[in-house]
Amino acid sequence: MCLAIPGKILDVRDGDEWQRTGRVDFGGVVKEVSLALVPDAGVGVYVLVHVGMALSTIGEAEAQEVFAYLRQLEPEDVP
């Protein structure tokens, strides 16, 4: 139940600060999500969503770290 899923913000409705919501696209499934905790996240940004609430934005550069790590592995680790 602690599953949180990444999705892309399609649009934003700014209410008062706690009512900020938007539609988020999860690979084709679109849901209305609270964006109250990610006030700076705008259209096109990926957010991590759990029980209808975006908990954090996903850093594009940081998302590459695992792959950068794998690329710099020594040849003997490449099966």
Partner: peptide, 13 residues
């Protein structure tokens, strides 16, 4: 309202 810290903000809101 069950959950860990992950769920707590949505429950709190």
């Amino acid at each position: 309202a069950v959950g860990f810290e992950t769920t707590a903000p949505a429950n709190a809101l």
